[in-house]
Amino acid sequence: MPFPYASPEQIMRDRAEYARKGIARGRSVVVVQYADGILLVAPNPSKALHKISEIYDRIGFAAVGRYNEFETLRQAGIRYADVNGYNYNRKDVTARALANVYASQLGMIFTDSIKALEVEIVVAEVGESADQDQIYRLTFDGSVFDEQGMAVIGGQSDTVATRLKERYRPGAPLAEALDAALTALTEPGGERPSAAQLEVAVLDRNREHRKFLRLSGPRLERLLTPATPAAPETPAAPAAEGGPKPPPTAPEGDIDTGSEPPL
């Protein structure tokens, strides 16, 4: 049976459309520079399935989209970094090289496969000083964007980015940067995610050896406290509902529980 003709343009457009829809369904992830390095913030109630990860000494990874797809990318990144660091020297592993590996893989899948990867990722590298920090954003088709100071991926990324730009101040201390990120991730008038619903990590240039550090538990609570002075009027309301609330910045669609794709 002959297939109806579809132009290459049409095929690419459909694929891009499909991937874009999948990515926009989840919640946004924010990567932003602060005084001592780079902060990565993801609303993620799951403790097991991470959206943010360490790749190497100075390099971190953040992703949105389908969990299984970006998990494969994450693992490949770790393999790539470890093989190169072992073969040469730990100093010879760079975010730029890694971004290129990702870009070629994403681009190849976008053109060759039936379905593009429904992912958007950030590869961030903390440098010796703030002007050496690098944040690369990669989209499903393999495009690489060299971001300055901040990047937002997934969900309603444009809206979140706009809100982030209003609050973001270069060289802000950690608590202020986190506050800006959370403000950006929360719809105006919406309730901020609590520490338990957040996945937060930093690439802190002042740390020895490995710069990546997850912030959780009491440490994260402490960072969040000064940023939330007044308690919401109806604190009991979310608990009473019993189920997971729809994410404040997500469009209509599937509820993101963090435990099943799409994230």
Partner: peptide, 12 residues
């Protein structure tokens, strides 16, 4: 060194 770190990063 790489072996321990590799496991830690992959497995969390």
């Amino acid at each position: 060194q790489v072996e321990l770190e590799h496991y830690e990063k992959l497995e969390g």
